[in-house]
């Protein structure tokens, strides 16, 4: 008899404690971000698809078309082509395409690049209804960014 009353009172107390916890949360600010209207800033180490880095002095790609990334890529989704221009010590890339349908964002290409010509972007709004929109021409992309 005594136990039942004591247990019931103790049980009721725990219910009140629980309700105090939730009402405390009720009066705090919501933490959700309303995604299409507002978005969180991506963290520094976020891995989007890769892009080419531009040489700050010449404004051209740092890529020397060594094809290390092409070889390092486990999914075989990078294609690089290049030539040696007159008066330049190094080769330069003429074509750099990424097949993002295969890319697993492993970062092997970024790691292997001897001239640090590749980096991750922070773009993530990449939904599309066409497969074609996932074949990125990274040279063109870099040129467009210049404008």
């Amino acid at each position: 008899m005594k136990n039942i009353i004591r247990d019931s009172v103790a049980g009721f107390k725990t219910l009140v404690v629980g309700m105090r916890v939730t009402i405390d949360q009720f009066f705090r600010r919501p933490v959700t971000v309303h995604y299409p209207h507002e978005a969180l800033k991506m963290p520094d180490r976020y891995r989007g698809h890769i892009e080419l880095v531009r040489d700050p002095e010449t404004g051209k790609s740092l890529c020397i078309a060594c094809k290390s990334c092409e070889k390092a890529c486990p999914s075989d989704c990078i294609f690089v082509d290049g030539l040696k221009r007159e008066g330049e010590k190094r080769k330069s890339a003429t074509e750099f395409t990424l097949d993002f349908t295969k890319c697993s964002l492993c970062g092997a290409c970024v790691e292997v690049c001897p001239t640090d010509a590749l980096r991750f972007t922070k773009s993530y709004n990449l939904a599309s209804t066409q497969k074609q929109s996932y074949f990125f021409d990274l040279m063109k992309r870099m040129e467009e960014q210049k404008k």
Partner: peptide
Amino acid sequence: AAGRFQRRAGPT
């Protein structure tokens, strides 16, 4: 209210 209890905004 459910939203606020869970630190969400509910229907907006």
